[in-house]
Design a protein around this nucleic acid. Structure first.
Lengths: 327, 327
DNA sequence: GTGAAAGCGCTAACAA
DNA sequence: TTGTTAGCGCTTTCAC
């Protein structure tokens, strides 16, 4: 059998409580502490986290529920969150929903059963809608996407502004028949769509926007249709890194050049965007800041459960590259 | 307070044991089962997994320890593992070590404290070496990288063969001054190096190989040095997706064309590889198969703890693209 | 098929 | 500072 705290106590000639105190940095005299520590080493004792959590009634665990770990934005986010958690001596359990509401519901349930301390969560639009009726025993901080107003803390990019800047940039460069492909699962894509449409309208332009599954294949298909159809756009925007990738693939498949035939721009400064052609113009998100901000909000909420919900909004940065050069 | 099994029992007019049986699909009469189920719904009962695990002495949890979630290979792997786990009604806890042995040790310890059922693990070379002395209370299946021989089950790509195929391909295409950049943290990179060197020798060629940190920036730097130095190679190979990316970036920064100035090839069929220039020649790994195989090995090991250690080796697939076209 | 009782490994409350 | 005791929420005997 596994060695427990009692075995250690026996080996050190102390009571289990003393061992527990050593483990938890409680008040123990130096002499006993040392004896216990050697006993721990000798016996190869490993605490049983289930027992500890059950008894102590706190899990020191935060859940991070993201919609797609294949999206580098979320991998980067998870790294930031994990670093912050580690500094606070917390564990993080990482959950990947694949934009699937059923999986979101499952993980949300799991978080309750694990009795996590708090959750950082990027909900699909569909789940965000039901979030209003749900009750959790832990604080939830929304990242990247919004939920019901005033109910949860959140941190987001200023999506309308960023999308507007993208639109302004294209208009300024002389593009006129501008299309946009937006994700159909997130509030974020909606916000980007809204900002995009509004900004183009400000230039007297009408946006041709469609909503697609936020995945490479779906975006590629939609972009291909756009390129093959009548009145081919002279610029296409993608609302996240995956969609942008699909657009670039479709262009390549159609044998069209960027920006000579069609300009391209979008969100997320992924590594490949500076590699294809003369680079793809993108909005870069301050991912690490987003992660840190989410953790801060979570910790503050734990300290002060009854304060008003807060939303932190961060600005994106436009990186101009060859894909939107004036031709 | 949270509602527990006793509250449900009281609400249903049964004993806690009966509720537990309903929860665990134990033998309960249809009538009572229904009463309990409605009581569960009414009370909003959520099981406490810590308590359940403590009492039942099994966690139904498998740990997946990967070296870099920013590497699409591992994101894909985690998806495959999670799917298989889900089908077996198991949870997976996903741990990202960033190729950092200290983090590996931490997560390995955590897995023990969580009393996981088993672990699937991609160790750095450094940790793999110490793995021989370590003892775990659960089976460990190594993926992508080897450990001490005969000690753990494992599933790997046939790395020597795949690297050899890459070398053969380059030699056949007429490249002669061939360099390779290999990761310096994994047995896998070593195997690829060995296969590469051996195959080139078979063509009477000498490989110029260097080992670098398996990350984009480090690879870019090393590739830049290679390109700027005397006797510039006419082909460079990268031992994983991240390194390959660094090489391509360095070429771009140096204003060199692919394959006109330098041919490029490597491992991992990441999306961007078919996008830059006329595409990059790569070895594609059967990631999903690797994940599934790892889970199978794990489950079989749980059934049969004392069988001999097994290693499953899978073949890679060479995808020829423009980056190695004969010029 | 059902309930009563014990106890998983630990920490917290209380006493000394 | 240390030990004794109780009990976290659940599952698993064991009896009936």
């Amino acid at each position: 059998m596994a060695v427990g705290i009692k075995d250690v106590a026996r080996a050190a000639g102390v009571s289990p409580a003393t061992v527990s105190r050593v483990l938890g940095n409680g008040p123990v005299s130096a002499g006993l502490r040392e004896r216990v520590e050697t006993a721990i080493r000798l016996t190869g004792y490993r605490p049983n986290l289930s027992a500890r959590r059950l008894r102590s009634q706190h899990s020191r665990t935060i859940g991070l529920i993201v919609s797609d770990l294949g999206n580098p934005f979320f991998t980067a986010l998870s790294r930031a969150v994990e670093d912050a958690a580690y500094r606070a001596e917390m564990r993080v359990v990482l959950c990947n929903t694949d934009e699937n509401p059923a999986r979101e519901a499952m993980y949300l349930r799991l978080m309750q059963e694990e009795r996590v301390t708090g959750v950082i969560y990027a909900p699909t639009r569909r789940m965000a809608a039901s979030l209003g009726q749900m009750d959790f025993d832990f604080p939830v901080v929304l990242v990247d996407r919004t939920g019901p107003v005033g109910r949860h803390d959140g941190v987001l990019l200023d999506n309308r502004d960023a999308a507007g800047r993208l639109a302004d940039h294209l208009a300024a460069r002389g593009f006129r028949r501008i299309a946009g492909l937006f994700g159909n699962t997130s509030s974020t894509a909606e916000d980007r769509h809204a900002g995009f449409v509004a900004a183009l309208a400000g230039h007297g332009l009408t946006a041709r926007a469609s909503f697609v599954a936020p995945a490479v294949a779906a975006a590629e298909e939609a972009a291909a249709a756009l390129l093959a159809g009548p009145d081919r756009p002279d610029a296409i925007v993608g609302s996240n890194g995956l969609i942008l990738l699909g657009i670039v693939k479709a262009l390549k498949a159609a044998g069209l050049a960027m920006p000579a035939d069609v300009a391209v721009a979008g969100f997320d400064n992924e590594v490949w965007t500076e590699l294809v052609g003369d680079g793809v113009t993108v909005i870069e998100q301050p991912v690490a800041d987003i992660g840190r901000a989410a953790m801060s909000l979570l910790f503050e909420r734990l300290d002060n459960p009854d304060g008003a919900a807060r939303t932190v909004m961060l600005a994106g940065r436009l990186i101009e590259r060859g894909s939107t050069r004036r031709v």
